[in-house]
Simulated scan of single mutants.
Amino acid sequence: MEIRGRKATVLIPEDQIKQKVKQLASQISQDYRDKELLVVGILKGSFIFMADLVRELQVKTYIDFMQVSSYHTSMESSGEVIFVKDIGSDIKGKDVLIVDDIIDTGRTLKALVEALSQRQPRSLKTCVLLDKKERREVDYDADYVGFEIPDRFVIGYGLDWAEEGRTLKDIYAVED
């Protein structure tokens, strides 16, 4: 497959993604049994993953969204986290799970956790589909991780390159 003039090959096929989403949902449901959970999706990349995840959860779930940006239109994170849209929910005293598509440098998730922690949730955890540990620049790891991947630029299943590739069912690695 080709995207924006670059070759892209399947890194994680759809069937493996579906299986991993069910495993993550099972673990989260177990950890939050008998509790209510506010799931906060980070737009735009997490929306497909989050939709599939919350449909598999076996706990009372509420949903909200935030939008942040650090990539703009490039293949590299700018290192600057910009808060574009805040959540509409009061999270004080609530169990909150932030869902994002990917963690690489760790800056975005760490900034989100620090910002939301100030609002005094009962608990605050993070769930990501993909983890690029090789790229970590700050000391932060997600609580729930789907797949650890190599340092490759990826698209599909919600992840994009300048808005292209989001709706692909598999996750693809884009060649440099």
Score class of each variant (00 low, 15 high):
residue 58 Q to L: 13
residue 54 V to C: 08
residue 74 S to A: 15
residue 63 I to R: 02
residue 100 D to V: 02
residue 64 D to H: 01
residue 77 S to G: 11
residue 100 D to S: 02
residue 88 G to T: 14
residue 119 R to E: 06
residue 97 L to V: 03
residue 103 I to R: 00
residue 84 V to L: 11
residue 98 I to E: 00
residue 57 L to H: 08
residue 84 V to A: 06
residue 66 M to N: 03
residue 69 S to A: 11
residue 98 I to Y: 01
residue 104 D to T: 05
residue 76 E to H: 14
residue 119 R to S: 05
residue 118 Q to Y: 06
residue 63 I to A: 04
residue 63 I to F: 10
residue 72 H to I: 09
residue 70 S to D: 06
residue 82 I to S: 05
residue 100 D to I: 00
residue 64 D to Y: 00
residue 84 V to W: 04
residue 58 Q to A: 15
residue 74 S to L: 15
residue 75 M to E: 15
residue 107 R to T: 09
residue 53 L to I: 07
residue 67 Q to A: 12
residue 98 I to N: 00
residue 68 V to G: 05
residue 72 H to L: 11
residue 67 Q to S: 12
residue 78 S to L: 08
residue 118 Q to E: 13
residue 109 L to P: 02
residue 111 A to N: 08
residue 118 Q to D: 08
residue 103 I to L: 07
residue 90 D to T: 13
residue 82 I to Q: 05
residue 97 L to I: 04
residue 74 S to I: 06
residue 67 Q to C: 13
residue 79 G to W: 04
residue 98 I to W: 01
residue 107 R to L: 06
residue 82 I to F: 05
residue 56 E to Y: 12
residue 89 S to I: 06
residue 65 F to K: 07
residue 66 M to G: 02
residue 86 D to W: 07
residue 55 R to Y: 07
residue 107 R to Y: 08
residue 70 S to L: 12
residue 116 L to K: 08
residue 116 L to H: 03
residue 80 E to I: 10
residue 79 G to N: 10
residue 74 S to P: 10
residue 119 R to H: 09
residue 118 Q to K: 15
residue 108 T to I: 12
residue 94 K to R: 12
residue 67 Q to G: 11
residue 87 I to G: 02
residue 75 M to A: 13
residue 75 M to D: 14
residue 73 T to Q: 15
residue 77 S to P: 07
residue 121 P to I: 09
residue 90 D to L: 07
residue 76 E to Q: 15
residue 63 I to V: 14
residue 57 L to R: 08
residue 60 K to N: 11
residue 110 K to E: 11
residue 110 K to N: 14
residue 71 Y to T: 01
residue 115 A to W: 04
residue 86 D to F: 10
residue 93 G to A: 10
residue 100 D to Q: 03
residue 111 A to S: 15
